[in-house]
Amino acid sequence: MNTKNTLIILAIGFLMTLFGALLKITHMEIGPLNGNSVLTVGMLVEIIGGILLIYKLITAKKSYDFLNS
């Protein structure tokens, strides 16, 4: 997995978290989706993306070559 995919996973988790917060603040439910479930899934995706990003940082051979990998 390259760095671009890891950053995309982080961005998706961030957007899901924002959407879950919006649902929670407005007390809306869209079918089975409510604020609590979307926030939980979004935060889990962010955690997975963060772990993958930290792994990529640790295993990068050269720090200046990290974003090009």
Rank of each mutant, 00 (worst) to 15 (best):
D65I: 13
I54E: 00
T3D: 10
M43H: 08
T17I: 02
A21V: 14
N34G: 11
I47E: 00
D65N: 12
L23C: 05
M28T: 15
L7I: 14
A11T: 13
I8M: 12
L18N: 06
I8S: 07
P32K: 04
M28P: 05
H27M: 05
E29R: 11
L57K: 10
L23Q: 03
N5H: 12
G13K: 00
M1W: 11
M28N: 11
L10I: 15
I47H: 01
S37P: 03
G13D: 00
L57S: 12
D65S: 13
L22H: 09
F66V: 13
G31H: 03
L53M: 15
T40S: 11
A11Y: 10
M1S: 06
P32D: 00
T6M: 09
F66W: 14
K61L: 03
F66R: 06
L18I: 10
T59N: 06
I48Y: 05
L22G: 11
L15Q: 08
G35M: 05
L18P: 05
M43Q: 09
A21N: 08
K62S: 13
N2G: 15
F14Y: 09
I30P: 01
E29H: 13
I25M: 06
A21M: 11
L39I: 12
L10Q: 04
K62T: 12
K4S: 15
S63V: 14
V45N: 05
M28K: 11
K62D: 09
V45H: 04
M16Y: 07
K61H: 11
I54P: 06
N36E: 12
I47N: 01
T6G: 05
L44H: 04
L57N: 09
V38R: 00
K62V: 08
L33F: 15
M1A: 07
Y64C: 10
L15C: 13
L23D: 00
L53G: 05
L7K: 07
F19H: 07
T17F: 05
T40C: 05
L7R: 07
L33D: 00
L22R: 06
I54W: 06
A11I: 09
F14T: 13
L23K: 01
V41W: 01
N68A: 13
I9F: 10
I12A: 11
M16I: 03
E29F: 08
N2V: 14
K61Y: 06
L7D: 01
N5M: 13
F19Q: 03
N68I: 13
A60K: 09
L10K: 06
